[in-house]
Structures are given as structure tokens and as C-alpha cells.
Amino acid sequence: MDTMPQPGDTIPDIAMETPDGGSVKPSDYLGRKLVLFFYPKDNTPGCTTEAKDFTGMKAEFDSAGAAIMGISKDSPLKHRNFIAKHELTVDLATDAEERGLSDALGIWTEKKMYGKTFMGMVRTTILLDESGRVLRVWPKVKVKGHAQEVLEAVRAA
């Protein structure tokens, strides 16, 4: 794929590692809506706020029939620490270093900051329907108010 998915598309069913060392992939959530929020790094200000916002609204997402999974390339150990430090209740997954889901979707890409070029995650959220098809994509997410906007889209879908 290597490009941002569009509504109606399916996404690659690539396995990722869970914080406890297990494995998870998007198809594990078939039968309910799935919010995938891709974020750059555990325990950084924007990523922490985003994960805490989704955690704070998890019950509302549950009642709207949607699961939530945060995805970064941080290790399972870093995810465990992130979960413990911030009492997160949303699912987290570690994307593969190479050829992971974020790579396939074009979300892991070249970024520039302070004149340096590096590979990084573009903060992106994808909402999938019960059959695994893309309902909506939020590219280059601004964190403030984002979880609420996603919840409204889940309820409207």
C-alpha cells in the first residue's frame, strides 16, 4: 500500500507485538469498530496527552461499539512502563521495526526537525468499520480535542 488508506479501503493485516509479548493484528477486532491511533513516542507530551484522552473516554468508545489501539515503534517494555506510569487502559501495540503496519500505510516516513532528517511516525488515526474497512482517516493529528472528534465519528458511523 505505502500510501495513506482512503475510506472503503482495507488495510494490511500485519501482526504487532502486545506489551505482554503476545501478538495482535487488526483482524482480531473484526465484528466491532476499531480506532487505530499511530503516535511517535511513549512518554512524550503530545503522545501522553493523546493516550490519556483516549483512556479517559474508553467507556464511551466501548458503549459505541469501538475498540481502541495505540501503535508506535516503542518496545513492549516501554509500552508497559507507559501504561503503568499513566494508568492507560487502551490497548497498545509495538509496530515492527521494518515492514510494519505503519510502513505499509505510509505513516512511518521521513521527517525533518531542526535541520535533521530522520524516520518517524506521523500522528495519524484510522477508524475501521466492523468488517475492517476504513471509515475515516485523520492525517497529521492535532491532539487537543482529537479523541472527542473520533468518538463523534464512531457514534455517527
Rank of each mutant, 00 (worst) to 15 (best):
E60C: 09
V143G: 05
K112A: 15
Q148R: 15
S131K: 09
T109W: 05
K78Q: 11
S72E: 01
Y114H: 14
G115M: 12
E149V: 11
E98T: 12
A147E: 06
G132L: 13
A153P: 01
K144I: 13
M113Y: 10
L88F: 01
V141D: 02
D74A: 05
K78S: 14
E87A: 13
A84K: 07
K111T: 03
S72G: 05
F54Y: 09
R155Y: 14
M113F: 14
R155V: 04
G106N: 07
T89E: 14
T109L: 15
N81A: 07
R136C: 09
L151A: 09
G120V: 07
Q148M: 13
F54N: 01
L127S: 09
M121D: 01
G65F: 08
A93W: 13
A66R: 03
I83S: 01
V134S: 10
K144M: 11
G106F: 02
T117H: 10
T125E: 02
H86W: 00
E87R: 15
A59H: 09
A93S: 13
S63C: 11
L135W: 14
V122P: 00
K142V: 13
A66P: 02
R123F: 11
I68R: 01
G100A: 14
E98G: 10
T55I: 07
A156F: 04
T125V: 12
M119L: 14
I107R: 00
M57A: 04
K111I: 04
G145V: 02
M121K: 05
H146Y: 08
H146S: 14
